[in-house]
Amino acid sequence: MSERNTGVNWNESWIKDVKVNLSAVKARADTLGTRRCVKKKWQAAWLLKAAACIDLTTLAGDDTVVNVQRLCYKAKNPIRADLVEALGVKQLGITCGAVCVYPSRVGEVKQSLKECGGSAIPIASGIYEEVQQMREACGEAHMKTILATGECGTMANVYKASMVCMMAGADFIKTSTGKEGVNAILPVGLVMVRAIREYYKRTGYKVGFKPAGGIRSAKEACVWLSMMKEELGDEWLTPKLFRLGASSLLLDVERQLYHYVYGRYAATHEFAMS
């Protein structure tokens, strides 16, 4: 494994003459989900992976210790115990990737989780110097930069923003906060992971990717996983380099696993709410 991205000196040529053809990107994104799919136990394994990559998030004005605590417990136990048992994956100790809350709630999270998972600090992206300063401020903590891709205007800008953040030392690049009107969509994700691939090729640093918002179904989660596998390779299929910012997704994942184990469709109320 390569070490953590330290960033590189500003190099304008890396973002000059960036060409991204939106129609062609969409055409590829359209077929990501039709060229690959997983069934049966492969599907079960992939869904468990999705669960392990989920960042459970609450960024609401009315957050209190009550719902934050509930979220933390769910993150530690994302899948019903009987399903974990039946799937034979108890030894994997699958938990969600992280819990994301407002900074003021971090203490409560720490209290709720004996070992702290929430060491990633999301940063709204800016220009190179700004991101670089933030990277310094983060110290040992990992830095996720959120591109707010819905506001980027063009795919070339999405690519450039991704590259600037990585040059400035981002550990993760993230599509959006997940709370905006524009959600994570595959074409945008595709452009971002292509930027990650290019950055890796140039520097040897592996930067993580996190789509956030709008990913609700287990099937979609598998498509995002297969995009990572196809475009970046198997090494990116770990919570270290891939996170799904999607809270309601976990429920659907659990339901699909239930169906895999019992062959019946479950009711929502049969799963612990987060």
Partner: peptide
């Protein structure tokens, strides 16, 4: 013959 845990690690595609 792979178990689910194995596939979780390999992230291979199975037959579909």
């Amino acid at each position: 013959t792979e178990s689910i845990a194995d596939i979780f690690a390999s992230m291979s595609y199975g037959p579909a």
